[in-house]
Simulated assay, not measured.
Amino acid sequence: MGLRKSHTKQSQAQAIKKIIKKCSSFGKNNEDSGLPNDVPRGHFVVYVGERRSRYIVPISCLDHPTFQDLLHRSEEEFGFSHDMGIILPCQEVDFLSFFSMIA
């Protein structure tokens, strides 16, 4: 899988919206589509750390500058052109610390 680097904020925003739309499927019948059934509306999935631990976070996190920095680093390192969801390039303990500060 190759990396796709975006040079505009608009393409990053479009990729994030697509991932969020795909991952925010709570209550829908997605057995055949392979989409998650446990993600409530207004939330999305991120994968964090070496073991790719899965977290469901509120969309409101997207406004936080630190989270935006993580998304930018994620785009540079992993790209957004994969089906897994958003992979954040940080240690799990750092993510939990950050999330506890903003929640």
Rank of each mutant, 00 (worst) to 15 (best):
M1N: 13
G2P: 15
G2I: 03
G2Q: 12
L3I: 15
L3R: 15
K5E: 10
S6M: 12
S6N: 13
H7L: 09
T8Y: 07
K9R: 12
K9G: 02
S11N: 13
S11D: 15
Q12D: 12
A13N: 13
Q14F: 01
A15T: 01
I16K: 05
K17N: 08
K18N: 08
I19H: 01
I20M: 11
K22G: 13
K22I: 08
K22V: 06
S25W: 00
K28W: 00
K28F: 04
K28Q: 11
N30I: 09
N30Y: 00
E31P: 00
D32V: 09
D32L: 12
G34W: 04
L35I: 00
P36F: 05
N37P: 03
D38M: 02
G42I: 08
H43D: 09
F44T: 03
F44Y: 14
V45R: 15
Y47N: 09
Y47R: 12
Y47I: 01
G49T: 03
E50I: 07
E50W: 07
R52W: 06
R54K: 15
R54C: 10
I56V: 15
V57L: 04
V57F: 04
V57Q: 02
P58Y: 11
I59G: 00
C61H: 07
C61L: 13
C61S: 04
D63V: 03
P65T: 07
F67C: 05
Q68G: 12
D69A: 12
L70F: 15
L70M: 15
L70C: 11
L71K: 02
H72V: 07
R73Q: 13
S74D: 05
G79Q: 04
F80L: 07
S81N: 14
H82E: 06
H82T: 06
D83S: 14
M84F: 11
I87P: 03
P89Y: 00
C90W: 00
C90R: 03
Q91E: 14
V93P: 01
F95H: 05
L96Y: 02
L96W: 01
L96R: 14
S97N: 14
F99A: 11
S100P: 00
S100W: 06
M101A: 08
M101K: 13
A103P: 00
